[in-house]
Computed example of a mutant assay.
Amino acid sequence: MTEDSFTFFQYSSMNDLLTVILYSSQSLLATAPLLHHINHKNREILFIQTVGMGGNVVHYHVTKEIPKTKLVELKRLSGEFSFVGKIGSDALSMYVPILELEQSTFNFP
């Protein structure tokens, strides 16, 4: 797969990026994309990859600081989120791991 086969969407807020995860988890396929973190050209980037009818899409948000914990608690009903240190017992929340990447072939815009 070449980089030309990917579309990049940059979100202005973390909340918007996580809304994509929430929406994907409620789709017919019911899969939640993984959240990745990478430092790319001195920018802290959190991103997910999805596949849609138009092809492969990389959804990303440039953040000011590295997440201190490796999980995001995402409340399914409200869309509110928080960074947490462990999986909790809230059945109405989903817990999304943040996977740390050393490198990627993506050349973020």
Rank of each mutant, 00 (worst) to 15 (best):
Y95T: 09
L17S: 00
P67V: 13
Y23L: 08
V62K: 02
T63F: 03
L35V: 02
G54Y: 02
R43Y: 00
I98L: 15
T2N: 10
E3T: 14
P97Q: 10
D4W: 02
N107C: 11
S82E: 04
A30D: 13
L34K: 10
S25Y: 07
N15C: 01
S24I: 11
F6K: 12
L22T: 04
K86V: 14
L18V: 08
K68C: 13
G88K: 14
P109T: 12
S24H: 12
F47V: 04
N39D: 04
L22K: 06
E44R: 14
I87M: 11
S24T: 07
L35W: 02
A32K: 00
N39V: 10
E102C: 09
T31M: 08
K41I: 10
L92G: 04
H37N: 10
N107Q: 14
E73P: 00
I21P: 01
L71E: 00
H59D: 10
T31F: 07
L22M: 10
P97H: 04
G54K: 12
L101H: 13
F9C: 13
V96G: 01
A30P: 09
S5C: 06
V51Q: 08
P109Q: 06
Q26E: 13
I38E: 15
D4R: 01
S12C: 05
Q10E: 15
P97W: 06
V58N: 07
L46M: 09
S24N: 07
L71K: 05
L18S: 03
T50Y: 02
R76F: 06
P109V: 13
R76C: 06
F106I: 15
A32N: 01
Y95N: 05
P109R: 03
Q49D: 08
F8G: 05
F47N: 00
E3R: 15
H36Q: 12
H61D: 03
V84W: 09
Y23D: 00
K41R: 15
K64T: 03
P33T: 13
M1L: 10
L29A: 12
L29W: 09
P109N: 11
